[in-house]
Simulated assay, not measured.
Amino acid sequence: MKSEGTSKKKLKKALKTSTAVVLLTTAVLSVIYRLPLCFESQNPAALAAAAFTLTNGEYKLENSKAEKPTASDQKPTESADTEPVAEKNHKRDKSTYYDSYGNHDGENKYTVEERTIGDTGTQVDNCFVKNKTGLSLDFDGLLSAKLPFSIDKGINSPQVLIYHTHTSEAYLDEDVDFFYDSFYSRTNNNDFNVVAVGDALTEQLNKRGIKTVHDTTIHDESYNGSYDRSVDTVYKNLEKYPDIKVVIDLHRDAIGTDENKVKPVFTYNGKKGAQIMILAGCDTDGERGFDCWEENLNFALKIQDKAETLYPDMTRPLNFDYFAYNEYVCNGSLLIEVGTESNSIDEATYSGSLLGNAIADVLLN
């Protein structure tokens, strides 16, 4: 009986030992399996999250619950004094457009020159006006005058219209200092033309609580008659949305030669943007049917000054001259050019967002 009891004790001891060995071996193998996965992540935090605790011969993965975001992790609140929150850019489709890094064998290569254009003309508060009319105007008085219209914060109807007379005006696909023969700065691919900038502007105005409609109708299948076609689009929108107070025709400019293009840039918070230029027309003799030109100029000056206050060097001097384009449709109608064809699409859309913030400040003041 004694020997039988001893045998049972030995067997029990052996089973315990075997169990412990199996558990320990399993734990070690699990650690060996998990560690390479952690190192593949190239993230030290992943190593900490994958740490194992060995207790009582058992293993378990530490519970890595999602931590509450810190103040620096949370999405900042947008205000007049901050840069708009940039949304993650979607992947743009170059398959129907130009690719700076594509195959350009046999093509001539030309240059893109960066410049910051400003500080010329008549200074008005924080901004500059290039007065091409020869008129002696009190620009400071116009800037300080009350805006001739107001945004109604209590309605849920569009009060701003964004459209494009030259809808196919496009930008470079990348921030580069060169371009090839095959670069043609017009496209109906809305990932790379002024429609993308209009989207950014519209999004920012809507974020600031100003309901905005963006009409992307193509008006420039032919340059001839494009303004006649686009003003028809404007009137259709004004009829559909009678609360519209602001009408912006968004373009892009072109500076330089066929072999040396110029892109106007500025930098804000370490990020490069395309300079904008506001065009405000004049009609002193009534030939253009543009009776509200001084009120439009008031609006233009306010946007120009606000943009320069918030984002220094964002604007080229305001272009004030004898023209009307479609600005006669209402006293809040302007033509604004964002960058040139040699600015990158990212620079242009960034400026579209900043412009939206500046316009919102003027309208909500």
Rank of each mutant, 00 (worst) to 15 (best):
N193F: 11
D173Y: 01
F192G: 10
K261H: 08
V262D: 11
Y171F: 14
F266W: 09
V262E: 12
Y235I: 06
F178L: 06
T257F: 07
T165K: 04
I255N: 12
N269I: 03
I248N: 02
V262P: 03
I276L: 05
N189C: 01
D258S: 13
G273R: 11
N188Q: 14
Y241W: 12
H219E: 14
K263W: 07
E174M: 08
A200K: 05
I276Y: 05
M277Q: 11
V160I: 13
N190W: 08
N206G: 00
L238S: 12
K240C: 02
Y180R: 06
I248P: 12
L201I: 05
I210K: 00
N189S: 10
G225Q: 13
V265Y: 00
V265K: 06
I218N: 14
S185Y: 10
D258L: 13
V231Q: 03
A196P: 10
D228Q: 08
G281C: 01
T212F: 14
V176H: 10
A254T: 10
E203N: 14
S185F: 14
K271P: 12
N237F: 07
S230Y: 04
R186Q: 11
Q204R: 06
H251P: 07
V176Q: 13
K263A: 12
Y180G: 00
T187H: 03
S226M: 08
I162P: 01
D173W: 08
Y223P: 09
Y163T: 05
A196T: 10
N193R: 10
T233Q: 09
N260G: 06
E239T: 05
T216Y: 01
Q275W: 02
D177E: 11
L279K: 02
D177C: 02
R208F: 15
D243R: 10
V160W: 14
D215Q: 02
L238I: 11
K240R: 13
V194P: 05
L250A: 05
Q275P: 02
T233R: 02
Y163M: 13
N190M: 10
S168F: 04
Y163D: 08
L279T: 00
T187R: 07
Y235W: 15
R252N: 12
V213A: 09
V197P: 04
N237E: 08
H214P: 06
N260T: 14
E259Y: 08
D258I: 12
F179K: 01
H164R: 00
A254G: 13
G256A: 00
G256E: 15
H166N: 15
V160D: 12
D220R: 15
F183M: 14
A196S: 10
R186H: 15
V262C: 06
A254Y: 07
A170V: 02
G273E: 13
G273D: 06
L201K: 06
M277S: 07
T257H: 02
H251D: 12
K271M: 13
I276G: 00
V262Y: 05
Y184F: 09
D220I: 04
K272W: 04
A254V: 10
K211G: 05
I244C: 15
D191I: 00
N224G: 14
S182P: 12
Y223V: 09
G270L: 04
V197H: 05
F178P: 07
H164Q: 09
K240S: 13
L201F: 13
L238N: 04
R229T: 01
F183I: 11
Y235N: 15
Y235A: 05
Y227R: 03
